[in-house]
Design a protein around this nucleic acid. Sequence first.
DNA 1: CTGTGGGGTATGGTCTGACCATATTGTGGT
DNA 2: ACCACAATATGGTCAGACCATACCCCACAG
Lengths: 257, 257
Amino acid sequence: MSDAGWRPVRRTRTFEEVLAQIEERIEADGLAPGDRLPGERRLAEQLQVSRASVREAMRVLETLGVVSSTVGRGPDAGAVLTARPGSALTDLLRLHLRLSSLSMRDIIDTRLMVERWSAEHAARHPDRHGAELAAMERALERMERPGLPPEEFVEDDTAFHLAIVQASGNRLLTAVMQALRDSVRRYAVEAIVRLGDTAILRRDHRRIFEAIKAGDTAEAGRAVADHLVHAYPELFGGSPSSSAPHGACPLDEEPGR
Amino acid sequence: MSDAGWRPVRRTRTFEEVLAQIEERIEADGLAPGDRLPGERRLAEQLQVSRASVREAMRVLETLGVVSSTVGRGPDAGAVLTARPGSALTDLLRLHLRLSSLSMRDIIDTRLMVERWSAEHAARHPDRHGAELAAMERALERMERPGLPPEEFVEDDTAFHLAIVQASGNRLLTAVMQALRDSVRRYAVEAIVRLGDTAILRRDHRRIFEAIKAGDTAEAGRAVADHLVHAYPELFGGSPSSSAPHGACPLDEEPGR
DNA sequence: CTGTGGGGTATGGTCTGACCATATTGTGGT
DNA sequence: ACCACAATATGGTCAGACCATACCCCACAG
């Protein structure tokens, strides 16, 4: 018999089976956010497993952002399908960051690409994005408040940039960017403090906003790019890719600019 | 006293405390992928909690892709820091898909943006990406095998496109795209079957590969865009954004082209 | 010397049954 | 009508046991 071509038998732990069946039920019964799952004891009985196994499955579902558990009695207690599937992504990205598998350069490059793309999209049909434009303007005004602490500035800055992505209508990108901003909030505050003055950033924001509102796609893209360079000058210093082994010269480019 | 402004005290479950302490230890001790965590019994004893609580924490860490548990004895058994933090992202995205909060259009738009950007990056310095180019060529050859079942074609196709993103050097994008491809594998197979013939796709792949190798950034970007249109014609049909309420006309664009 | 078989043991996986804290619901008394 | 209190259902936690697995090591046979 051949020695290769074998693979170890897939050991299926019971909590994984429980997990799968719960997911199936959610899908089959068409459960929506806010709906309740059966209690742990009941699930354990029906699946004929121990409550501990059910609990491990619930922990996974909770980590994945599918359910949220509350104690007590009543129609809203127990495991409830949650409506905020994004926070799981946040936890993931935050962990990746802590375990230093990602660099700041990667994150800013990604932001540049996504937000530029989104801004161009938004600028193509500014009339369709009244809500997002309003959100952007609100954030703009909040950022003008004198004596604003860095933490709050970052908050409004996040709202502004998220509105851009939201205007693209792409929910995948919106979810990822939301999680990304949440994950790096601390670093963003540090960057603002290091920068000292937010005047340039606020001017950039206005420029982006006006470009989108005016439907000037090219200008909107350029404005986003310039803005990120101003916000993270240390990443775009004259030295060509000082710490980046390959790739990442995200500005000297854009084919046909 | 004011009635508002209060929020319920944050009940900290013990497994969350365990989780936090484990994360701290990983960071403080500088543990790297491959290193072992103490056994569940030992952790429970040192933290003075029950083994069940430790297990729930481990389940979360496993879901987050931080550790991977194996039974048995020996230096490689137990909870080991995993080197593949991507699988957690895969689970998340797959779940989001099942709960239908994401549309195929969003995914393809994202692919288009990311892979175009990556291809342009790679084409800018083709000499630095020998490894990725080799991987792409290998995938190209595998896809030429006659009588290839759709599943295997998708496998090689994924390898090809992933190599493009890898060549960008951006680990965040690489992780996200890897997870995305894994999440939609089933749909990709269906798309291939629906298409019937892969000749056009294979020709597109060659075109992308040659453009990157030749350092033709503009052509590389165009080739990627054309390829995705060929692969998902139903999304880019002549009807202007038939099912997309706003945004997403990802081709009639590229500012200053 | 080799190697081969088997026992010892540490690991995660699972189960049972209990108790606690919390929050709603029902009920009885005022 | 209102309020106090018991009943109850929920998740959270614990202790202790047993199982299957996989490695380690040593005695024993070749």
